[in-house]
C-alpha cells in the first residue's frame, strides 16, 4: 500500500465464456484490478457498457469496491478519457475477450491523454511520482523499468497476483451508472475499417502458390504422410545423442 499515488483507475471489460457464451469477468482485466487493489484500497473502477451485465458481479466478488459504468456511445476512448483526466495510474488487461479485443484501447487512451504506457507488466511497485514495473518477455526473461506518472499500465496474463473470487464481497460492492449527459455523444469517425464476424473455424494458412515438379510433389506426398514421431532403436549412445542434437538443431531449438 502506498500513499504516493493520488488516484488509481482500473478499466474492466465484460467478458464472455468462449464455450458457454455466459457473461463473466475478463481474467486479464481482473488481474489489473487485483494489482490496483494491491496498490491502494480506494480505486476507481470503470466499465464501458451495461450496468446490468452479470459480468460486473464477478468484479465485485473479485474485489472492486464500486464500479462506475460509462454508457457505450460511439467513442469509448473519449468517454473514458473524460473520466481519467486527473488520474495518476491507469491499469488495464492486455486484451478484452468480447467484442473488439484488439488490445488497442489502452494505446489509444494513452495517446489521447498523453500518458506513458508500458505493456506486459507482471509486477508494480509504486514510488513518489513514478512506478517501477517488471515486464514480461518470452522465454523466462524479465525487464525492470521505472515509469514516470501519470502512466497507463497494461497487465500481462501471467502477472504475479492471485485472484480471489469471494462471494461475500458481492454484497459489499456497488455499481453506479454515470449519467450519459456527461459524455461526448458525437459520432467520431471510426478509424477502423468495417469488421464482420462469423463462427470460429480453423484459419487457413497463407502460402505462396507454386508449381511443383513431379519429384517435389512426390516428396510432399511422402512427407505429409509421415505421421508419428521417429523412433531410434539402433546405434550406440553417442549416435543416439547425436540424433537428438541434430533434431534440436534442425528445429532451431538450441543455438550451439
Amino acid at each position: 500500500m502506498t500513499d504516493s499515488l493520488k488516484r488509481i483507475a482500473v478499466l474492466v471489460s465484460a467478458g464472455k465464456h468462449p464455450v458457454s457464451g455466459q457473461p463473466r469477468h475478463c481474467r486479464n482485466d481482473s488481474l489489473a484490478l487485483q494489482m490496483g487493489l494491491n496498490l491502494a484500497n480506494d480505486i476507481l473502477v470503470l466499465h464501458a457498457g451495461e450496468s446490468e451485465n452479470p459480468a460486473l458481479q464477478d468484479y465485485l466478488a473479485l474485489g472492486a469496491p464500486q464500479i462506475n459504468v460509462i454508457p457505450t456511445t460511439d467513442n469509448i476512448v473519449n468517454n473514458l478519457a473524460t473520466q481519467l483526466t486527473n488520474t495518476d495510474l491507469i491499469l488495464s488487461g492486455t486484451r478484452a475477450e468480447n467484442g473488439d479485443d484488439s488490445g488497442l484501447l489502452p494505446y489509444l487512451l494513452a495517446t489521447k491523454l498523453n500518458l506513458a504506457l508500458v505493456a506486459d507488466v507482471v509486477e508494480i511497485k509504486a514510488y513518489e511520482n513514478k512506478i517501477e514495473i517488471l515486464q514480461f518477455l518470452p522465454k523466462g526473461r524479465r525487464r525492470r523499468v521505472t515509469v514516470c506518472l501519470p502512466a497507463l499500465v497494461v497487465v500481462h496474463p501471467s502477472a504475479a497476483v492471485t485472484l480471489n473470487f469471494i462471494h461475500a464481497r458481492q454484497n459489499l460492492g456497488s455499481i453506479s451508472t454515470l449519467s450519459a449527459s456527461n459524455f461526448d455523444a458525437k459520432h467520431s469517425q471510426s478509424d477502423l475499417k468495417q469488421w464482420h464476424t462469423c463462427p470460429a473455424r480453423k484459419p487457413i494458412k497463407l502460402a505462396a502458390s507454386r508449381t511443383l515438379t513431379g519429384h517435389e510433389r512426390l516428396m510432399a506426398a511422402i512427407s505429409s504422410k509421415a505421421k508419428g514421431g521417429a523412433v531410434v532403436n539402433e546405434g550406440n549412445n553417442v549416435e543416439k545423442a547425436q540424433v537428438i542434437l541434430d533434431y534440436l538443431r534442425e528445429h532451431q531449438l538450441i543455438d550451439f
Binding site: H17, V19, S20, Q22, R24, A61, L163, N164, F165, I166, H167
Partner: peptide
C-alpha cells in the same frame, strides 16, 4: 475465496459453464 490449488478454477468453470 481461498480454496487451494485447482479448486478455484473448477468453481469458476462451474459458475461460467
Amino acid at each position: 475465496g481461498s480454496a487451494p490449488n485447482k479448486a478455484p478454477q473448477l468453481l469458476e468453470n462451474l459458475r461460467q459453464t
